[in-house]
Write a protein that binds this DNA or RNA. Structure first.
Lengths: 209, 209
DNA sequence: CAGGCTAATGACAGCCACTGACAATTGACA
DNA sequence: TGTCAATTGTCAGTGGCTGTCATTAGCCTG
């Protein structure tokens, strides 16, 4: 995991500091009103160095998010083969939510990450990037699902369609959570569960109970 | 529709020319390799004037797309009330596809718009904006669906969930179409139809036939 | 049709994200 | 310790975008 060598450790420390400071500034005074120069100055590195760690100002905003997504993917890989595709995805998110906390805390306070999520949802430029990243993850998941079921992603529409529907719901819950007032991991988890359970009924031809 | 007055007509003409020239440059040499200065110079206006017509370089890329989306929304408004929500959306896209051609041609050649769509799908910065715009439209649609069914969007999850699933599928078809070789409105229409029909089966718990 | 009003434009200066190039520094390792 | 390579800082430059102000050009009234 951790590589020995002063050089590597120093680099990791600089990176982590950049992420933490950036998130503090973004959540504190807003993404757009924070300049890269400010972040670099606060960490005491040159602006050029910032761009050697992160390809763009946006990228640093998603550093923690990245970890969380990887966690979900791994959870999905580990779902038993007998679970139906949609159930596997559903269970993977829910179980990932339960163990994500510590992983985040290793880099930044969980509360900071949650507030950053809100900033992402409410900042047009970041929201756009967030959605694009989500589609990249979708493609990975679709391939994984297809593999699980022994199908060809490009021949059978079902893997991509199932994933698209699933992550569409995930996106809606993310939005609603961001707008709401219960900014806890727990609230997020419950909202996710509720909305996923409504997907079947929502596609039914008759909505009247 | 059209406002008399030399001033208004001149403005409309400048705007249309900016859109057409921009799309030609974007599709010809790529979005990133085209500068705003180039577009402005080609239309013989100052860069400052370009930014008085479009808030950003991205915005001009979506000018035609905007029209198409509005067309779909109107088609949805006109669906009969007895159609189930999901069917209404499905029929609205399909019927919109049939009449969109002429509307586009009024501004730019349809072929140019189709190639621009491909550029959007394959340019990360544009894809991100495209997805964000899509979610804004989703919100509008969810409200419309809720109204149709006499529901409260914020109380009942089904409108947003149904729309999310629907537009997730639409997004996938858009991607696949862009990657494919059949760059015609017709191919797009058929692909859309096929994939929408697979949504039900994709959510089923058993994929084996 | 003269002259005043206002919308539209151009010219200019400046901010910020980002990049290439080169020199200076600093771990790593023989 | 000295050499090598990775990391960093500096600087100059590009491109997207904005504020400001003077100029131009359609419009409208008398």
């Amino acid at each position: 995991m951790t590589v020995s060598g002063l050089r590597e450790r120093k680099k990791q420390r600089t990176r982590d500091t950049l992420v933490r400071v950036a998130l503090e500034l973004f959540t504190g005074k807003g993404y757009e009103r924070t300049t890269v120069d400010e972040i670099a100055a606060a960490v005491d590195v040159s602006q050029r160095t910032f761009f050697r760690y992160f390809a763009s100002k946006e990228e640093v905003a998603f550093a923690v998010q990245q970890m969380v997504e990887e966690r979900f993917y791994e959870a999905l890989v580990e779902r038993p083969a007998e679970e139906a595709p949609f159930d596997a995805m559903r269970n993977a998110v829910l179980s990932a939510w339960d163990t994500i906390g510590e992983a985040i805390e290793a880099v930044v306070p969980v509360e900071l990450h949650l507030r950053m999520f809100q900033v992402i949802e409410s900042t047009p430029a970041l929201l756009a990037v967030h959605l694009r990243r989500a589609t990249e993850m979708e493609e990975r998941i679709a391939r994984l699902i297809a593999e699980r079921e022994g199908l060809d992603v490009d021949a059978d529409p079902r893997p991509r369609v199932a994933v698209a529907a699933f992550s569409g719901v995930m996106r809606v819950t993310g939005q609603l959570w961001g707008r709401g007032t219960e900014l806890t991991v727990c609230a997020m988890r419950d909202l996710t569960e509720t909305y996923l359970d409504h997907l079947g009924p929502a596609l039914a031809s008759e909505w009247r109970d």
